[in-house]
Write a protein that binds this DNA or RNA. Structure first.
Length: 305
DNA sequence: AAACCTCACAACCGCCTTCCG
DNA sequence: TCGGAAGGCGGTTGTGAGGTT
């Protein structure tokens, strides 16, 4: 965890409505003492009435500042650490549905704050969009997320689950990574049999009917091929090679989708091959070092070299 | 070892909405 | 019904840590 910034020397600027007390308002990083004061006060009196709370607690902070500090940092049920693949997947899904409605998205991720999700999106997702020279709010990027990133997160989840299940109970049909999922809204289904496996994310009843539905399959009945360049129609009709996972894009309008992961110049096709042209989608794209919690989409989007 | 760069994230800002007298 | 205060939210910034050159 990062060390808090040094307390800012400055105080809040005066405005026309400032009282004398306001001129002493502190800004900048919170000190341990302030955190203690705020936590102690809220534990005794509860949240709400933030301006009054700030005064009563003896904090020289605005109510807003106290609220933010509590909600984003001090609240006991806040989760720390990297976002899990499940959480990342959910964020991608919900963002594709709701856009920058961070607080709404955060409500679906217990223990995660809107600020954290917003930061995740800005620092990781938008970074990838920049690297790919795609506008992060463009349809093109959205499709890239849906068709590459999401399935890989699913695959990651499956990989995690198979590792954990093999280390515990190999006969379990519900991997612990999924069984332990805290996702409140997304139904995760996992099936495995002798030759095939799938992970599906489906919409719960309370979601609109067009809510994202993606499935990850590895159908055994399709003949192996060395490369897997195929068009979107093939994907949507399940006529795809089996050396790669594919996405069931039922929930998406894939018409006119022009995207080639390898060159970014293809028309009407995209590449999930295991060739060197697209190592991210290759058979070794998910090596063991991606299993740790710090895994992120950089691993997915290593498109070049 | 130092300078520089990038990343992550806490905190702030300003606008909008809701609440309340 | 109105106006001010408070709360909520999304966008932006500042800064320390860690990595790279």
């Amino acid at each position: 965890m990062r060390v808090a910034r040094q307390p800012a020397a400055g105080v809040a600027k005066m405005d026309c409505n400032s009282s004398e007390d306001d001129s002493e308002l502190r800004r900048g990083p919170w000190t341990l003492e302030e955190d203690t004061l705020l936590t102690r006060y809220i534990s005794h009196h509860g949240e709400g009435r933030w301006n009054m709370l700030a005064k009563c607690a003896g904090l020289k902070r605005t109510g807003k500042s106290c609220r933010l500090r509590w909600l984003n940092y001090l609240k006991p049920d806040i989760k720390r650490g990297n976002l899990t693949p499940q959480e990342q997947l959910l964020i991608l899904e919900l963002h594709s549905k709701w856009g920058n409605r961070w607080s709404k998205i955060a409500q679906c991720l217990p223990g995660r704050t809107d600020n954290e999700i917003k930061n995740y999106w800005r620092t990781r997702v938008q970074k990838q969009a920049r690297q790919l020279n795609i506008e992060s709010n463009s349809k093109r990027f959205l499709e890239a997320v849906k068709c590459f990133w999401m399935p890989r997160l699913l695959q990651k989840m499956e990989q995690n689950s198979s590792i954990s299940s093999s280390s515990s109970s190999s006969s379990s049909s519900l991997p612990s990574a999924l069984a332990n999922s805290t996702l409140p809204i997304t139904t995760l289904m996992y099936n495995t049999n002798h030759h095939s496996s799938s992970v599906s994310v489906t919409s719960p009843p309370e979601f609109p009917s067009d809510f994202t539905k993606i499935s990850l399959h590895q159908p055994h009945e399709i003949t192996q091929q060395s490369t897997s360049v195929y068009d979107v129609n093939s994907v949507c009709t399940n006529q795809i090679p089996s050396d790669s996972y594919y996405v069931d894009c039922c929930g998406y309008d894939m018409e006119g989708f022009n995207f080639n992961l390898g060159s970014m110049t293809g028309m009407g096709s995209f590449n999930l091959s295991s060739s060197s042209e697209c190592p991210a989608a290759g058979s070794d794209w998910m090596s063991n070092d991606m299993v740790d919690a710090s895994w992120n989409m950089d691993d997915i989007w290593q498109l070049r070299e």
